[in-house]
Write a protein that binds this DNA or RNA. Sequence first.
DNA 1: GGCGCAAACGTAAACGTTTTCATGGAAGCT
DNA 2: AGCTTCCATGAAAACGTTTACGTTTGCGCC
Lengths: 360, 360
Amino acid sequence: MQGDASMTTKNATIKDVAREAKVSVASVSRVLNGLGGVTPATQKIVREVAARLNYIPDNAARSLITGRTHTIGAVLPDLYGEFFSELIRGIDLAARARGLHLLVSSSHDGVEDAAVAVRAMRGRVDGMLILSEYVDAAFLEENLPEKLPAVLLDSPVKSARYPVLNIDNRDGAIAMVRHLVEAGHQHIAFISGPKTNFDAQQREKGYRAAMAKHAPAATLIVVDGDFTEDSGYRAGCELLSKKPRPQAVFAANDMMAIGCLYAFKEAGIDVPGDIALAGFDDILIARYVTPPLSTVQVRIADLGRIALERLAAMLNPADKTPASVETLGCDIVIRKSCGAKADAPAAPRKPRKSPRPLPT
Amino acid sequence: MQGDASMTTKNATIKDVAREAKVSVASVSRVLNGLGGVTPATQKIVREVAARLNYIPDNAARSLITGRTHTIGAVLPDLYGEFFSELIRGIDLAARARGLHLLVSSSHDGVEDAAVAVRAMRGRVDGMLILSEYVDAAFLEENLPEKLPAVLLDSPVKSARYPVLNIDNRDGAIAMVRHLVEAGHQHIAFISGPKTNFDAQQREKGYRAAMAKHAPAATLIVVDGDFTEDSGYRAGCELLSKKPRPQAVFAANDMMAIGCLYAFKEAGIDVPGDIALAGFDDILIARYVTPPLSTVQVRIADLGRIALERLAAMLNPADKTPASVETLGCDIVIRKSCGAKADAPAAPRKPRKSPRPLPT
DNA sequence: GGCGCAAACGTAAACGTTTTCATGGAAGCT
DNA sequence: AGCTTCCATGAAAACGTTTACGTTTGCGCC
């Protein structure tokens, strides 16, 4: 009982357990880590004492000596919205399945900011998942601790050292354009994303490539957007004023498509009757607008999961998989807005887990 | 130059810097931590050498000696959906503003699972934000390392030791019911959430209290739901079959309200013409369905921010603010679905940041 | 009973920092 | 010049683990 009394002030350490159990710290360590080489009787004692003292090993000390933290760091540009929610979920699930913890770091306003974020990870993580427009090969060489494994997400860099995992934006855009053409549309306008955005670039490339192939006669119409609903609205207004009004509009993301949709509604233009509409991302809202929005689905949680799995593989020193650029395909999901015979009801009500508006 | 060559194998430590700069490790530490008491000349040397060797302090070692990690742990039940996206965002923003890192841990299937998650934080974090249905006062006493500050979110526990930050679900529900009554509805049905969910309980209590006060003559109709869209749909169907059809339906969350909305649409019931509808949470989708959904808004990011700020205050040993149960108010946001004169356009297009469907 | 061997266990070094304390020297004062 | 004061610096302890290595113990075998 006096042991309990003396414990109220500080956390028990391995030494306390050793003393109380009348064994050495080494034995305590062995027992608690299941290394064997210790008598069942002693094991019992040690476990009992550890439980009684409520001993919890200190991870800092453990990390210091082993060089392992069982934590991976995720460097993300911003935690806003569905994309990151899904990404983190995918990462976290996969991490947790491997007993890894997740340290997130977000909102880097510039390359300098990103550098401190990455550097701050030293001694905190075993590997990193990086999604940032600011990092390139030189950046990593400069700021990443020696030999720290890292996987790059959605990045244009090609490195012999770090695997890259990209979304196949180009292919997804091509598939959607092809579908629109097959649905009878030739004059398909495109609402582009931010010029500096890698995804946006790829999507526009896909649009252009597909148009060249499937609708070579059509005049290309590209109006600028910046991924916001507002810019989509403005783009929609602009498109309505075009001489030959486009038959279809393909927006580089769903939010712009939705903005565009409201511009059309306001103008009394029927979608898909007067004009077809498609987006990109398949955000949750897409299926709830009227009409439901056809779009390109990116399996974001999968992206996170695969990235983490790749990283986890690198954590194993035996792993010799060469760094490569992998690509995760997209699926087009056809709803009412593009005018094709939709294969989904207006309100798909298949048992779908709620987006958990509030915790259970 | 030979220094560079010798560095290729291991990361530079403070000793390397000290040796190379011909000073002691103590001085290097002082310089790099800005403690003063060191000549500008020496500072210059040290900084130069540190930069040249690309020295990055090891956080594990630092934490071990200082007892500080500059990291806070967030224990969350699940990372699914908008709620957690927003919550994490709020936490992360506030944390980052204070130079704190964020370690997230999620998806605990049971009390045992939650216990290992919490215990795994020892030596990794300076404090914890906990949102879990499994933790109560006894749990904390058992699993939380001695003297580790923690803030509980959305929890029924009253502890003299740990501050609790709740959403004022009850008050929000009351406000919405009052609004519905003022809009002329008396017979207001309620779709409840999971019985074990704290938020759901509070919302139902609010509904009952407000009905008793503002519509004492009305017969209470409560049908079960579980926060999923699907359960909302079923509830909607059930409500339509009630003898005196309710004039309004108040769902314990938005997803159920939306499911309900589709049930009504399917049955040819006009919302809000034939029946009014309201939800809770103000998820992003709420404003995009037709008609836009009236709902109760919880400022989730604020919840995260405030929780972190409270926790940050506790990190300061001088802080003696007593642990208390705080409550974060909700605002009702009136759109078309409840039949009142909506004060917002169908598609509010005020410059609103895109939910960042894909990263910039 | 002595020998060897393996299993159980303990000792101590190591991990990379921060921080206390001692030391030396320069500067200021009388 | 002699004294004190103060400041820059270095040596070493400490943080709580893991683990390589050495020591003891128990046991079977000749």
